[in-house]
């Protein structure tokens, strides 16, 4: 299971990177979503992939038994998903605004902040 999830995470990162390098704003964002999901999977795997036992720590032993999944990473992913979702909503809105203001989706063509024609230095 861990191996399959690792391969899946790797595939997601590869696909995400490919999309991000296309230069189009929307593809960049979709790529980012893929990569952040890959990262979520990576965190998920760190807490053991099993549903055998309940994650209670026996006082006599003091550590989580080997057949239980650690719940902490799952809590981390929930936080990360929420944050990621919020940021994605913002960036989508920003992308839409950028497209309507500058009339292009290509980040290389967005030269409002750094104009191409530079004046001669002093």
């Amino acid at each position: 299971m861990d191996l399959w999830l690792s391969i899946l995470a790797g595939t997601l990162v590869a696909g995400g990177s490919y999309l991000m390098m296309s230069g189009a704003m929307l593809r960049f964002l979709l790529g980012l979503v893929l990569i952040s999901n890959a990262v979520n999977l990576v965190i998920f795997v760190t807490g053991r992939m099993t549903y055998a036992g309940a994650p209670f720590i026996d006082k006599a032993v003091g550590v989580l038994s080997a057949d239980a999944a650690n719940p902490v990473p799952q809590a981390l992913i929930l936080t990360a998903i929420v944050i990621g979702f919020g940021l994605f909503a913002f960036t989508l809105a920003l992308a839409l605004r950028a497209y309507s203001e500058m009339g292009t989706d290509d980040t290389d063509e967005m030269r409002e902040a750094e104009p191409k024609t530079e004046e001669k230095p002093l």
């Binding site: 952040s36 990262v39 965190i43 940021l87 967005m110 409002e112």
Partner: peptide
């Protein structure tokens, strides 16, 4: 220009936070 600057700023910073999250994981 602010929207344009924000696009670059947001893009690069989101990559950085994703990397940070992966590192923490």
């Amino acid at each position: 220009p602010q929207i344009d600057g924000a696009v670059k700023y947001v893009g690069l910073n989101l990559i950085a936070t994703t990397a940070m999250l992966a590192g923490i994981g």
